[in-house]
Design a protein around this nucleic acid. Structure first.
Ligand SMILES: [Mn+2]
Ligand SMILES: [Mn+2]
Ligand SMILES: [Zn+2]
Ligand SMILES: [Zn+2]
Lengths: 130, 130
DNA sequence: ATATCAGTTTAGAATCATTCTAATGTATTG
DNA sequence: CAATACATTAGAATGATTCTAAACTGATAT
């Protein structure tokens, strides 16, 4: 994708060297679940020496532009998901790995939310044993 | 409950002063969702000066005996749930509050888990807007 | 009861992910 | 090429949690 710069500009983000490298990796067409740490490791392997501060800033900036979703699965790190469509996950604690569930799932028997509250979204997390 | 000491002993926990106070509060019959911080604040109001280290230890010990569940909702703190039955939650980010959903809910359309993996449990989290 | 010992509590230090600070660098626009 | 706004960075700060190691206490045996 050589139009990553367009893509960033369209999202009101300056296409800096670091953002281009990170966006090229994240938005290569394969959905990913990354943490600051896993992204940093990947970038190190690609010989891209991008500071952790920038990695955090960039993940945050992409999140704020709606290019990433945040997943709160695990209290010790934040996962960012390049799949921004509404979907669910398998989670293997053992492997520390998430797998998308893109199939339509339905939740039935949901009670009414408390007074004055509206349902924003329903998240299903399927914990795997093994 | 004056048999909190029995209760603790039955769960291989010495009924120390601190554990009795904490267990009396947590297991008073009303299901609760606490963090180390909210529990500490509650204990302060009850004039029970229990160190944060002990609060963390005790929550952890109760968790390990199966008296509490851990909920990973929010990356900045761990919630402990006195309702150890399988159930789901409403979550208001704004209020930082959890509400139990004890009704039977059914999730349909779930795909098969990946090879060699078994489903442990399904957790539904209903995010509230407001 | 008292002694003994394993288990518990505690203050404070350490850890670790994340955020902040403030100095330096760079993309954009004219 | 300025000028300026925005971005990157190293390192400090933060805050929840865990660890350490010394003092304390509940359980058990004399
Ligand atoms: Mn930011
Ligand atoms: Mn412990
Ligand atoms: Zn996903
Ligand atoms: Zn609950």
């Amino acid at each position: 994708m050589k139009d990553i710069k367009h893509f960033l500009r369209q999202n009101s983000l300056r296409p800096t060297k670091q953002r281009v490298i990170i966006a090229n990796y994240l938005f290569d067409g394969v959905n990913k679940h990354v943490t600051a740490e896993t992204l940093s490791n990947k970038l190190l392997k690609m010989k891209a020496g991008i500071s952790l501060a920038t990695i955090y800033n960039t993940l945050h900036d992409f999140y704020e532009k709606g290019l990433l979703k945040k997943l709160m699965i695990n209290s010790e790190r934040i996962y960012f998901d390049t799949n921004t469509a509404h979907h669910h996950h398998f989670y293997s604690k053992k492997d520390q790995k998430l797998i998308d569930i893109n199939v339509d799932m339905k939740v039935s028997g949901l009670p009414k939310p408390p007074k004055n509250k509206k349902i924003n979204k329903i998240e299903v997390l399927v914990h795997l044993d093994n």
